[in-house]
């Protein structure tokens, strides 16, 4: 930035406010505890001791949408659940992100029928799709890290537009 060279070794770092805000968002992202079906069990595995998602600042699953900023749609979304899912999404405070976890949430998966939405992107806007039926916990963690990459690129201007 230019200031560092002049200040030398004084323990001062300069950056933009955007970077600081985005950095802090990625390190304390609270996902919503929103299990629908099979993928929810793998999400629980990702939370548990073996895979330990809290390494990435995600040890807190919030049951209330008002306290969370990441929605992990873990499982198939039925026609009866769709409106409920939308309401939960609307209740989350901005800024918010959505991961479609698993094939069913991404594109309907094996259930190409009357009861299931062919992709949760028909209900809420999705940021990251994670493939797999169900995805392994590593895949979910990779999806979360991909969201972080996206968050790091956010600008205040983009967020204001939303």
């Amino acid at each position: 930035m230019g200031v560092e060279q002049k200040l030398g070794n004084m323990g001062v770092v300069t950056t933009t406010l955007e970077n600081v805000v985005n950095w802090s968002r990625t390190n304390a992202m609270w996902p919503m505890l929103f299990g629908l079906a099979c993928c929810a069990i793998e999400m629980m595995s990702a939370q548990a001791a073996h895979y330990d998602m809290s390494r990435f600042g995600m040890e807190l699953m919030r049951a209330s949408p008002r306290q969370s900023d990441l929605m992990i749609v873990a499982g198939r979304v039925s026609k009866k659940m769709g409106p409920v899912l939308r309401r939960l999404y609307d209740q989350m405070p901005e800024p918010k992100w959505v991961i479609a976890m698993g094939d069913c949430a991404s594109c309907g998966g094996v259930f190409n029928n009357y009861a299931i939405y062919q992709g949760v992107d028909e209900v809420v806007p999705v940021d990251v799709y994670v493939a797999g039926c169900p995805p392994r916990p590593e895949a979910l963690i990779h999806g979360v890290l991909t969201v972080y990459e996206k968050v790091k690129g956010d600008t205040f201007k983009d967020l204001a537009k939303r």
């Binding site: 026609k79 009866k80 309907g108 190409n112 029928n113 009357y114 009861a115 062919q118």
Partner: peptide, 19 residues
């Protein structure tokens, strides 16, 4: 099924709903 659904899904004349 949610209230207000038309038809009865497991009847044979109800389409599977392929997309």
């Amino acid at each position: 099924m949610p209230d207000g659904t038309e038809g009865h899904p497991l009847r044979k004349d109800f389409p599977l709903g392929y997309e």
